[in-house]
Amino acid sequence: MPVELNHTIVMARDKKASADFMATVLGLEVGPPYGPFLPVQTGNGVTLDFMDAGDGPITSQHYAFLVTEEEFDEIFARIREAGITYYADPGHRQEGRINRNDGGRGLYFEDPDRHNLEIITRPYGSGG
């Protein structure tokens, strides 16, 4: 069996708010709680398990999602409709722009806990 990513833990100040944000923006669903986790599963079966961080600091993480051109349009529309600031680059210097890396489209935005989220329509290095 090849190695596959099954799940990852996403630390949050409010796991419900963060899971709801991610699911709403990406067009996914929040699953039923599992222990201390609130899961959001992607189309390829990877689960983002949101967990309350308590009072400790939250280290910003990066989560990139490969989406179709149609999904990009739908997600981008939800981002703009919600007034979420987006960027063409991971360092957030190109505000209000998207990138066209590898012949696709991509953008970055933050969740409520400042995790750096990305949607792309082509994997990096795929040409174009």
Rank of each mutant, 00 (worst) to 15 (best):
P32T: 15
T8Q: 09
A23L: 07
V25P: 01
D111M: 09
Y108M: 11
L26D: 09
Y124W: 11
T8W: 00
G43S: 12
I119G: 05
R122S: 02
L66S: 05
G103W: 03
Y87L: 01
A53K: 12
S18R: 09
N99D: 07
R93G: 13
R122Q: 13
S126C: 10
P90E: 03
G56T: 05
L107S: 06
Q94R: 13
H62R: 12
D89R: 04
N116L: 09
V25Q: 11
G104I: 08
P2V: 01
D111W: 06
E74L: 14
V67D: 02
T59Q: 11
V25K: 06
R80S: 11
A77L: 10
G45T: 02
G83H: 06
F50C: 03
R80L: 10
G104W: 01
V25G: 03
R80W: 01
G104R: 06
P57E: 13
R80A: 06
H62Y: 08
H7Q: 14
A17T: 10
G27M: 04
Y34A: 10
P123W: 05
I79D: 14
A82S: 15
E71K: 01
I9T: 13
D113I: 04
V3Y: 12
G45E: 06
T24L: 08
R114I: 02
D113A: 07
S18T: 15
A23R: 02
N99L: 04
Y86W: 08
L107C: 15
T85E: 14
I120D: 00
E81K: 15
G35F: 13
E118R: 04
K15W: 02
F65S: 08
E95T: 08
P39V: 11
L48A: 13
T59L: 07
T68F: 00
V25R: 07
D49I: 00
P112A: 10
T68I: 05
V25F: 02
I79L: 15
R93E: 14
M11G: 02
S60G: 06
P2M: 04
G106E: 00
R105Q: 13
R114G: 01
V25I: 15
L117A: 06
L5Y: 03
N99E: 01
P90F: 08
G35E: 15
D73T: 13
H7L: 09
T42K: 00
D102L: 00
D113Q: 06
I58Y: 01
H92Y: 09
V10Q: 04
N101C: 12
R97N: 03
D14T: 12
H62A: 12
N101Q: 14
R80M: 12
L28D: 04
L38H: 09
N99K: 03
T85I: 07
R93Q: 13
G91M: 13
T47K: 14
T121R: 06
L26E: 08
D111K: 11
E71F: 00
I75M: 07
A88H: 00
H7W: 06
G35L: 15
H7E: 13
R122N: 09
R80N: 15
I120S: 03
E95V: 08
E69Q: 12
A88Q: 01
M22F: 15
P123K: 07
G43Q: 13
L5I: 15
S60E: 12
G35I: 07
N99M: 03
